[in-house]
Nucleic acid binder design. Structure first.
Lengths: 210, 210
DNA sequence: TTTTACAAGTTGCACTTGCAACTTTTTTAT
DNA sequence: ATAAAAAAGTTGCAAGTGCAACTTGTAAAA
């Protein structure tokens, strides 16, 4: 993933911050970021440290929406923090930059090279995030766990055409990603195994039908 | 939704087309657009006419992904046409502009005002589309139809806080949007009605619990 | 090493959902 | 105005899924 400041030098970055009337906030480990920065329509960038966007379902379940690291971009338009009951917790000491979306979309900015470079970086970043969203929707649209799994495998395969698929996360997290119950998913993985469509060993899934 | 050409005059638009090495294609009613324009990584704009992005599930179900009208923006990064089995059908005679994404992300473009304005428009358009995607994900993540419906109502309510909610589409389309079986959804709407949480009359849903 | 925590694997059961096959109502086209 | 098509409304049933409550395995902390 591109950095929002790619191809910008320190001087340009400072000019950019002036132009966009940005605010920077410091947070301690475990501090709630959103509480401080919450505002109508914002774009944020992690300048230092790490954080996590999550929310608590009415039943007490915690859903992790996104892990943020240095130069991660998030915000009301750019990620799922339009949800009222979501929170952003600083995982380490951190520094977060906040830009007002309407300040960003001020036509006067276009007179400045450094702004145009910045916008261009943001454009690529959001496009990539958007593509990830659409990928997930294609999975979530499927009505049955089996179809969700097969769709997930297909998408991974189309990005890396190998029979061997290494999960980038735990099975528990896969269940969250495809939004189904963990044991129900596991049962379905077993059925796929029984039908000789896949083999599964730790985080390596072999697609026998490819 | 913003037009990708907002704040650009005809001369600037022509210069932009030269700069980005765009190609424009004409289609007759019912013609398959994707077949012609398909390429690795593209951004497309409807210049004239209407079209529809859809795909056929393995079971024969047709899923409509998006309806395109004049100045709609779509593409591999910008919408769900990374799916191999999807098709784009021209609903009227139409004209489609195709831009190579890598041509778009050529740093040399940044020297031209008209390009920067264009990028700025695209940025806003994709952000809005991205936000819509995330909205839908929040619904699809819910495991039960009842919860999906309540999430849908909540989101609509947060955008327009009125007890009266007017569906922008048919119940059938709502079922597709929240990705559940139509009759099962209807059954659940009836349960919500029985529980006196909602009233429903044609496309008007009254949220009694708000 | 031992303890503790968390992920993986397993199962029964109740409930939810998808699906097929209808009827009825509404909308669109001739 | 009539016919045709599409959407809305209804129901029974089989299959799928969520959930709770476990056991087993594995990795991290004391």
């Amino acid at each position: 993933m591109r950095s929002p400041f790619q191809d910008l030098n320190k001087l340009q970055i400072n000019k950019l911050f002036d132009l966009l009337n940005v605010h920077s906030y410091s947070f301690k480990k475990y501090e709630d970021i959103l509480q401080t920065i919450k505002s109508e329509n914002i774009v944020c960038i992690v300048l230092e440290g790490e954080a996590q966007i999550s929310y608590i379902e009415y039943n007490g379940n915690e859903i992790i929406l996104e892990n943020l690291t240095k130069f991660s971009v998030f915000g009301t338009n750019i990620s799922g923090i339009d949800n009222d009951d979501c929170e952003i917790i600083s995982k380490t000491d951190s520094e977060i930059l906040v830009i007002n979306y309407n300040d960003l979309l001020n036509p006067k900015n276009l007179n400045h090279v450094y702004f145009n470079i910045f916008l261009y970086n943001l454009f690529d970043i959001t496009n990539n995030k958007f593509r990830e969203s659409n990928k997930r929707i294609r999975i979530l649209e499927k009505k049955q766990i089996r179809d969700k799994l097969l769709e997930y495998f297909d998408i991974e395969y189309s990005e890396n055409p190998s029979k061997a698929l290494y999960l980038p996360f735990s099975l528990k997290d896969l269940a969250d990603y495809i939004a189904v119950n963990r044991s129900a998913m596991f049962r379905e993985l077993k059925h796929l195994k029984d039908d000789r469509l896949i083999e599964i060993k730790n985080r390596k899934i072999t697609l026998l039908y490819k």
